[in-house]
Design a protein around this nucleic acid. Structure first.
Lengths: 240, 240
DNA sequence: CAAGCAAGCTTGTATATACAACTATTGACA
DNA sequence: TGTCAATAGTTGTATATACAAGCTTGCTTG
């Protein structure tokens, strides 16, 4: 049989996969940068880049321009479950009202997403939500909204620019603390609605909502499938 | 909002999508080569390459080293339906026995594939079979078998080299004419069995079976998800 | 006529380079 | 202390180049 000579970028991919599988690189851990990998494996940056990029497309890594590359949340859990964990933590901190509100919204979101996606495709790979230390923060400031798109099929290539017009500002405003969590849920809903609106089959919308001005204490960013590199972050992964 | 400057490779992607959508480029049509696109859009070959590659990953195109790039079979049809069309055509040509045999096999294949895939994943994007003018040919010769892999997730990166060892020669032999069709069905079965054997979740095996020595009249190649570039070809697309 | 070789075209891999865009940190300054 | 500006680090885009690997065609040769 033909002897398959393993390509260099494949070796790097296998190396990274091994690190992830072995648990050495936990979820949300920072992966060596392109330059570091290039030097480590004695290849050019573009080769190391290719390895990172293909693993990103496979859903194992998440990349963020300016921040770096990180291990994705690939052990998919029910978003409902994880949102409920958030709600539990909120409740522990004594905000019963918000917790209840959030739980109700979580159920609604899951059902709505499920309905939406089953109409279009039944290949939901993973719907998961992760969160970190956002609950510590109190300050709110001006909020800006950005939209991006990754990994789509036919239709997306036409709609890319039109899509940027759809900016549901009203979903997000600066109010009392802890409302980011509920706002995030609404952002998920917004994304799902946008998908339905534009009749997109297989796409992955990526909403990034960030507090652009922040104090020295940290940044709050709400995101659907954005990089987990920021220290203080409440985000949700939504793949379909 | 931030003005999104459209990247060059995106423009090329949109151009190709528009050609496909408008019907100007039919299924299995040849797409301009990397060099042609590069010259047409006044970009480097690598940029044109990226556009083609991303569309390939999205399932719109199929590329084959040495042959070229072609429009994929993205309007998914039931493989059963298409295999039956082949059977019908065979019957029209007066080979009743083969037609009946083929139809029976088609049913078995579909059921088996469905069972296999539902065990692993329920995201069958498309299972389709296409064919062309293979039925004109009569000659048989030595047959060789190759295996390749595309588009997989975690597991595949470990199994790539082991996979090349599995070469079910016995599925293919040189016999009477028209047996290529049934052999192809068996090749599909082989691919499905290999997937189950290696416990692969999301992968796309690519069996290429080719008559290495051919007359000046043409080539017969049996393939699962191989490029439709050859003039005389009986192949099947199997995506999951 | 058949078989095999060689040339030319295609995609695949890899390197080196440059600049753009974005992020996070640092440090100066009011 | 808080704000702003500069800087370093990271990923994104693009070009130019070279060679490897595979396919197709055409020619040569027996």
């Amino acid at each position: 049989m033909t002897k398959v000579k393993t390509a260099k970028f494949t070796i790097i991919k296998q190396h990274i996969c091994q690190k992830i599988e072995s648990g050495e690189w936990q979820q949300h851990a920072k992966v060596p940068s392109e330059n570091e990998l290039a030097e480590q494996f004695s290849v050019s940056r573009m080769t190391a880049r290719r390895a990172l990029q293909e693993l990103t497309e496979q859903g194992l890594l998440i990349r963020s321009q300016g921040s770096g590359t990180f291990v994705a949340t690939f052990k998919s859990q029910s978003s409902l479950l994880e949102i409920r964990n958030i709600a539990d933590e909120i409740q522990e901190r004594g905000h019963r009202h918000h917790a209840k509100q959030l739980t109700l919204k979580a159920v609604a979101v899951n059902e709505e997403i499920a309905i939406l996606l089953n109409l279009k495709t039944n290949s939901i790979n993973s719907v998961s939500v992760f969160y970190s230390e956002v609950l510590h923060f109190e300050n709110d400031q001006a909020i800006q909204l950005e939209q991006r798109f990754v990994n789509s099929a036919l239709v997306k290539n036409y709609l890319e620019q039109d899509f940027t017009q759809i900016t549901p500002h009203e979903y997000l405003s600066s109010e009392a603390p802890l409302t980011e969590a509920t706002h995030e849920i609404e952002a998920v809903l917004a994304a799902a609605n946008i998908c339905q609106l534009l009749n997109i089959d297989k796409s992955m919308p990526c909403l990034q909502v960030k507090r652009r001005t922040w104090s020295s204490k940290g940044v709050v960013s709400l995101a659907i499938l954005t990089s987990p590199g920021n220290k203080y972050r409440l985000g949700s992964h939504l793949k379909f």
